[in-house]
């Protein structure tokens, strides 16, 4: 099986990271884009919600109000209330922390592992590279969701196993991109040229290879984060993530589903939060990536 370095699909990776020399960067002048601003503003809001939720929603996400169950959105409850009378807005805001933590931790595992293994494969000699690359292939032969399910069957449901499962499932993608990038940089003219400056191999790797390989990693991570948030929502919707009453978005969706006919806001609004997060991450990630690609010769 050939390793395709191109668009291994994630929500936002429609544009491959490998630079295409046929599109000169100078032709694409970047203009201020309203979409980017909105996405950025949303992400700032999201971080505030995750770090200081009380700033946006002072209430208690678990406080039930039996007098106001399944209330439609109104000025008192922007997003309405659920079957126990809990304020959906408060729960969505407080859920941001849960969802973002899971996403960040899973992406952290995937990126760290992916970078280390990818670098190892890219810098290693043929045999080690072949072994590692085939392992990435084998690992990515399992569909993300099924790999996560297998992992959860072994470890039991819960936040920890959820994030580790997503991390491991998305790791091979990162590892492959980093490996490809490493090979590209290793063969680049400037690395060869640097040999003629009398640089030792460790210094060569440290000064020229590593920075150029790791440069695009943050971009990869941002786009990967969107994917992780999406996957986490899916798994906790299936009841395999944080358990109720925890205000995690996927779990809220799962709960709200039973009241779909009478209280659409219980499902649609937390769902919109997930979608908006992934869209915002993708928009910012792609923009960053385009700038990055333009920067490279």
């Amino acid at each position: 099986m050939t390793v395709t370095l191109g668009p291994t699909p994630t929500a936002g990776a429609a544009v491959p990271l490998a630079t295409d020399p046929s599109t000169p960067a100078g032709r694409r002048r970047t203009r201020p884009r309203p979409g980017l601003l909105v996405a950025g503003a949303y992400l700032v809001l999201l971080v505030v919600a995750a770090v200081l939720p009380a700033l946006l929603a002072p209430g208690d996400p678990l406080a039930a109000d039996p007098r106001a169950t399944l209330a439609a959105p109104d000025p008192a409850h922007w997003f309405g209330t659920d079957q126990l009378g809990r304020d959906v807005w408060t729960r969505v805001v407080h859920g941001a922390g849960h969802s973002l933590t899971i996403g960040l931790a899973a992406t952290g595992i995937a990126v760290t592992g992916g970078v280390l293994l990818g670098l190892l494969a890219g810098l290693a000699h043929r045999f080690a590279d072949e072994t590692l690359s085939r392992s990435f292939d084998a690992l990515s032969a399992f569909p993300l969701l099924l790999l996560a399910l297998l992992f959860i069957t072994v470890t039991g449901p819960g936040t920890a196993s959820l994030l580790v499962a997503i991390g491991i499932a998305t790791l091979p993608h990162h590892a492959r991109v980093v490996r490809g990038q490493t090979l590209l940089v290793r063969r680049a003219g400037y690395v060869e040229q640097a040999v003629s400056f009398g640089l030792s191999r460790p210094r060569l790797v440290w000064r020229h290879v590593l920075p150029n390989v790791l440069g695009p990693v943050p971009v990869l991570a941002v786009i990967g984060l969107g994917e992780a948030v999406l996957a986490a929502a899916g798994l906790s919707f299936l009841g395999l993530g944080p358990q109720p009453p925890s205000p995690e978005w996927g779990a809220m969706l799962s709960e709200g589903r039973n009241y779909l006919q009478v209280a659409w806001w219980m499902t649609v609004l937390p769902g919109a939060a997930v979608t908006a997060t992934v869209v915002a991450l993708t928009v910012v990630g792609r923009h960053w990536q385009a700038r990055f690609d333009g920067r490279r010769p």
């Binding site: 400037y190 040229q193 003629s196 400056f197 010769p297």
Partner: peptide
């Protein structure tokens, strides 16, 4: 081994057709 060449490396330099490719992009 490359180590043996290193002391004299700078006495022999290279200019390639594609200067941009021979520059670290950063």
């Amino acid at each position: 081994p490359e180590r043996a060449r290193r002391p004299l490396r700078r006495r022999l330099q290279l200019i390639s057709q594609d200067p941009l490719g021979s520059f670290d992009p950063r």
